[in-house]
């Protein structure tokens, strides 16, 4: 975070506000047609899952830069645990805590 000045942080926020509000205003305020190409409608639904996974895959599988699927990478068991608890309980918070417990134990016992 130290990478930005206060002015840059303000710009980050303003840019995000403009982009997001602009998208939301698009049809409700400026639009006339409501027809949306079907393929686009489908595609947009997969964006959040794709982006979130793309963000964490390198963090979990290559925490030091190089791909690491060894026992020394505590991210792996931790992430698997988080996913398992999420699928099992449908509770985000439980999943994060479960992931943390396994991650912490792994770092303490194995690494």
């Amino acid at each position: 975070m130290n990478a930005y000045t206060t002015g840059e942080s303000v710009l980050i926020l303003l840019g995000m506000v403009l982009v997001t509000y602009g998208i939301r205003l698009s049809f409700l305020v400026f639009g006339h047609r409501t027809a949306f190409p079907h393929w686009l409608e489908r595609a947009l639904r997969y964006v959040p899952a794709a982006v979130l996974t793309a963000l964490i895959a390198p963090m979990a599988l290559a925490p030091q830069g190089a791909i690491d699927v060894s026992l020394h990478n505590a991210y792996l068991p931790g992430t698997v645990a988080a996913i398992a608890v999420a699928l099992w309980t449908r509770q985000t918070l439980a999943a994060i805590l479960g992931g943390f417990v396994v991650y912490g134990l792994w770092r303490w016992l194995v690494v």
């Binding site: 608890v85 999943a95 992931g99």
Partner: peptide, 16 residues
């Protein structure tokens, strides 16, 4: 392990 907190959070969101 802030990084792990982020990984666990995003993984949980996607898993759901």
């Amino acid at each position: 392990g802030l990084d792990f907190a982020m990984v666990a959070t995003f993984a949980a969101i996607v898993a759901l």
